[in-house]
Amino acid sequence: MKRLIVVILVATFLGGLFLFGLLRGQPDRNIESNRLGREMPGFELPVHAPLLAEFGPTFEFNPEALDKPIIVNFWATWCAPCRDEAPVLEYAWQEYGDEVIVLGIQTQDRDNQRAGVAFMNEFGLTFPNVIDNSSRVSIDWGLFGVPETYFIRRDGTLAYKHVGIVTNELMDERIAELLQS
């Protein structure tokens, strides 16, 4: 009888574990950023053509010298959810542009500047958008895939990272948090 109980226990453990796996589904990359609460690395990237006049040739992110909180969104032209959320980012910029900066970074999109500009024009994006040709900034920021959106406090520290598509409600809520801190 004792042996039978051992068999049942092992089967229950494995069954439970794999059942958990089935319920969870395919492993995804929704992984908490390791930099939560810490300063994010600085960078300087070339600004996309349509916005040169407004923002200058490059955009510099210096965590030590931010005058507003900043929301950094990584996107690529081949990424379908990025297309879906482009209007949301534009909404956030229109709504909260005075209090926060919204920055788009085109990444993991090898040398596709032209497609990037077309993407911006398609959605009428007016917030600063830069290109990370080598994907180096995305690696520095611990990016797994696109889209990912980082919410940075005024002191340059990471408040929250969102994996996948963002919504207007989520933007409202997170920006309110950013402004409170």
Binding site: I31, S33, N34, G142, F144
Partner: peptide, 8 residues
């Protein structure tokens, strides 16, 4: 890299 991506 661990600092950026965690133990993963």
């Amino acid at each position: 890299f661990q600092d950026r991506y965690g133990d993963w």
